[in-house]
Simulated scan of single mutants.
Amino acid sequence: MTARPTLRQQTGAPAARILGFGSHQPDRVVTNDDLSQVMDTNDQWIRDRVGIIERRFGDKDELLVDFAVAAGAAALADAGVEPSEVDTLILPNCTMPTQIPNAAAQVAARIGIPNPGAFDLNAACAGFCYGLGVASDLIRAGSAKKALVIGAEKLTDAVDPTDRANAIIFADGAGAAVVGGSDEPGIGPVVWGSAGELVDLIYMRDGKYIYQEGQSVFRWATTQIAPIALRALEAAGLQPSDVDVLVPHQANLRIVESIAKKLRAKGAREDLVVADDIKYSGNTSSASIPMAIDHMRKAGTAKSGDVVLAVGFGAGLSYAGQAFILP
């Protein structure tokens, strides 16, 4: 009897870390007063409800792929990594207008990344944390050496402009991170999951427009997400007091503040820096976490070496979070 051959296995870097961040937003700024010209709303109502002051909308001829290319190129420049060094591109999004071709391969070609493994990932607003977890694991397994993770969305293509409950929230943009190998852990384990029994809380109405049961989603997020964030810290061997920067998905300022309050009640420091990019960027789904981090680094409110706790949540209902060190 012939012996079965043994399949060779490969091993990668001992750990993974983030090497750089980048982001991109379209030029067009849309204020609450601008929205009040096309729907029954006003600046104070929007600020009180979701905390948004302004957001960015892409023009008709601007594409999700365009935003992703700009953010990805910026992240590579920040990391000092050449496109030729990247072998994997992961592109979390939920608003790509076509299923085929995917966004990732197009973006890789335009950035100049030669023949990478390239795929889209749809976990809605949890997408970036999912993508970062996958990239870290691929690098540690030896399946990738350097990965580019880009959360990109053009949500204005998927929002009914007359629906004031949703049109005031969503916006466009992209955020990206470069992930590489490391001798010391720079990214903690991803803690992820889903509540599929609540799938009907966020869906595409008529297969065209995003619809969500706002109050139900709010209650779920303000009760369930802080415990998930704490689980991510536990998985990384950290305490709440170790966290310097908290970056929840920028869905609603009231949700962000609720998560921060619950973490402080569990021992997070009073000087914990909490992302509030929602105020000027709106809800950009899978782009919101990396975009917020890039903006905070540029503003100096988050610095190299800081311990970041990120947690994403959204349609599915899907959620994911992890701790990592800022480059």
Results as ranks from 00 to 15, higher is better:
residue 137 D to N: 09
residue 140 R to Q: 05
residue 153 E to L: 06
residue 145 K to Y: 00
residue 127 G to N: 05
residue 107 V to L: 04
residue 140 R to K: 07
residue 75 A to I: 06
residue 52 I to R: 09
residue 85 E to L: 01
residue 129 C to P: 06
residue 121 L to H: 01
residue 122 N to K: 09
residue 96 M to Y: 13
residue 164 R to K: 08
residue 124 A to V: 10
residue 103 A to E: 02
residue 63 L to K: 15
residue 95 T to R: 05
residue 93 N to E: 03
residue 144 A to K: 03
residue 108 A to S: 09
residue 162 T to V: 12
residue 54 E to C: 14
residue 109 A to R: 14
residue 161 P to R: 00
residue 163 D to P: 04
residue 45 W to P: 12
residue 59 D to S: 14
residue 81 V to W: 09
residue 51 G to N: 09
residue 67 F to E: 07
residue 95 T to I: 01
residue 65 V to F: 06
residue 74 A to H: 11
residue 151 G to D: 02
residue 130 Y to W: 05
residue 129 C to F: 04
residue 137 D to F: 00
residue 140 R to P: 00
residue 152 A to H: 07
residue 50 V to M: 07
residue 74 A to S: 13
residue 94 C to K: 04
residue 99 Q to S: 14
residue 84 S to P: 01
residue 99 Q to I: 11
residue 80 G to S: 08
residue 163 D to A: 04
residue 44 Q to V: 14
residue 57 F to V: 05
residue 135 A to T: 08
residue 92 P to G: 10
residue 56 R to M: 04
residue 130 Y to A: 01
residue 52 I to N: 11
residue 54 E to K: 15
residue 99 Q to D: 13
residue 43 D to Y: 01
residue 61 D to I: 11
residue 93 N to M: 01
residue 103 A to H: 04
residue 157 D to R: 15
residue 80 G to L: 13
residue 92 P to F: 02
residue 51 G to Y: 02
residue 147 A to S: 15
residue 98 T to M: 13
residue 100 I to N: 11
residue 112 G to H: 04
residue 156 T to F: 09
residue 150 I to W: 01
residue 47 R to V: 15
residue 61 D to V: 13
residue 63 L to E: 12
residue 119 F to N: 04
residue 153 E to P: 03
residue 110 R to W: 14
residue 141 A to F: 00
residue 72 G to Q: 03
residue 146 K to G: 00
residue 44 Q to N: 13
residue 42 N to Y: 12
residue 137 D to Q: 13
residue 140 R to C: 05
residue 100 I to R: 06
residue 134 V to C: 08
residue 64 L to W: 10
residue 97 P to E: 15
residue 68 A to N: 03
residue 123 A to F: 11
residue 82 E to D: 14
residue 123 A to E: 10
residue 79 A to V: 12
residue 52 I to K: 04
residue 53 I to R: 14
residue 100 I to Q: 10
residue 76 L to V: 10
residue 64 L to Y: 10
residue 94 C to A: 15
residue 73 A to I: 08
residue 101 P to Y: 03
residue 122 N to I: 07
residue 97 P to L: 10
residue 111 I to T: 03
residue 156 T to P: 03
residue 128 F to Q: 04
residue 109 A to L: 14
residue 61 D to R: 12
residue 119 F to R: 01
residue 96 M to S: 15
residue 58 G to Y: 09
residue 149 V to Q: 00
residue 83 P to Y: 03
residue 87 D to Q: 00
residue 121 L to A: 05
residue 144 A to I: 06
residue 137 D to V: 06
residue 84 S to L: 01
residue 65 V to G: 10
residue 54 E to M: 13
residue 109 A to E: 12
residue 89 L to Y: 07
